[in-house]
Nucleic acid binder design. Structure first.
Lengths: 248, 248
DNA sequence: GCGTGTGAACTTCTTCACAGCC
DNA sequence: GGCTGTGAAGAAGTTCACACGC
């Protein structure tokens, strides 16, 4: 195994994966579980790539970082590959997750079944609002954020989800880090400052729409420009791609 | 080599932006609005970069794609830059968005204020479940998904959000595309197949957690394995994880 | 024959460092 | 002096194409 990328934690169980690969492994895992349910024992790179929405060369290169995973001329053993990916992602046990902020969005996240089925257990809910504390959501009691250190310790929580308003998020992040949390998924639309060694991932719903907006803007220019003048306000574009044209 | 990215829609109002830049512009926009509220008239690349959580060289390179936006020795005019970014992102008018699936998550999204304040208007809610149709959420009535074509046309909707269970998502996507929608934000944990010309972005909450899980896994190996027992601060977690200070 | 695994080519993205303008 | 704008270097990621093992 004279591999080039030799990081400090390199080894058979800890390949030093490129970030882009790490981001795709969960997608492969989901596709594999789906294939397993459908009774597939093996799958080709072509087949798995299609199920995961990537091209097969990329998939093979990604999997090659995990060591020998497939069989030439045959493909990948579905069950075995699931095990290997779960191994490197650290999903061999269910990780306890804390959720802070049980407003609109937090409420929905607390009830989201997908966490439970894919390796996580919402272990505690927190809010700063005393009127919310004590409320029962999905079998859990909302606790006050002052209880963070105690609960994080009790439940061995290392991952937290922030679903508070933006103005509260940094403060919450500080308290989480102080309590020992080392990974944060942030739904608040703001930048979080955390010390080295703490990972933050961000999900911003409005940003996703704004990116789509850019491409919409672009597409409408494509259809509007060649035909000379554009009509503001009314978009005559995009009724159907490949469908019959609509009178403008 | 004068690197002229000259695309079909290239021009002063439609610079051909790198995808990575497009993905960051919304973040700059949010930071700028924040700065404007705080009364700042101008901001340096250093200042804006800090507010947006990127480094200043990257920010300058990104903004340079928009044409001349700053003033040397001074910085960027906050209001002007907001206008320019909103221009290229196509946020000069509020875009109507359809939301399909008013279950757990859909409900929360329908009530999410962030859409309204950042360029979008939830114009319609849909569900396939007749028992949900007619329900009022946040001032909107839930309509049956069969009404899609009619409403999409009436409200000039080109962007839709899918918040249905995974098994229904592809079918919903097909109907959206048929109705004329050309951009989709998908919250269902599955891959969507859509024709060319339709953009899909995906948000998968469990995947985000699984990526964090990988890094947690990695970190725990770091503290467990190495003989180099130097603990800076608390847990010894305080270096080289996201950092590229990897030693040889 | 088939399909994985992989060097090599290529593209995209990031960072550096400094010229040019205010 | 200060800060933007940008070529050039470098790093990361993707795609190609084919050798190799089944």
């Amino acid at each position: 195994m004279s591999q080039q990328r030799t990081g400090p934690t390199d080894g058979p169980d800890f390949p030093d994966l490129p970030e882009a690969t790490v981001a795709r492994l969960p997608e492969y895992l989901r596709a594999l579980h789906h294939l397993a349910e459908d009774g597939h024992d093996t799958v080709s790179s072509e087949g798995l790539a299609a199920a995961a929405g990537v091209n097969s060369a990329k998939l093979r290169k990604d999997l090659s970082h995990l060591g020998r995973t497939g069989t030439r001329g045959v493909g990948y053993d579905v069950t075995l590959l699931i095990d290997q990916i779960e191994q490197v992602l650290g999903l061999t046990h269910r990780r306890a997750v804390a959720l802070v902020g049980v407003g609109n969005l937090g409420h929905a996240l607390a009830g989201y079944a997908g966490f439970g089925t894919r390796g996580f257990r919402i272990a505690a809910l927190f809010d700063a609002d005393h009127s919310r504390v004590g409320e029962h959501i999905n079998g859990l009691v909302v606790r006050h954020i002052d209880d963070l250190p105690e609960v994080v310790d009790q439940e061995s929580i290392s991952i937290a989800v922030i679903a508070t308003p933006a103005h509260a998020a940094q403060h919450v992040a500080d308290r989480l880090v102080e309590a020992g949390v080392t990974s944060v998924l942030n739904f608040a639309p703001c930048v979080l400052n955390v010390p080295d060694g703490v990972d933050v991932r961000k999900v911003d719903l409005a940003i996703e729409l704004q990116i789509l907006s850019f491409h919409e803007h672009r597409k409408s220019a494509l259809t509007a420009l060649p035909a000379a003048v554009q009509k503001p306000g009314r978009v005559g574009m995009a009724n159907r791609l490949g469908g019959e044209a609509v009178a403008t």
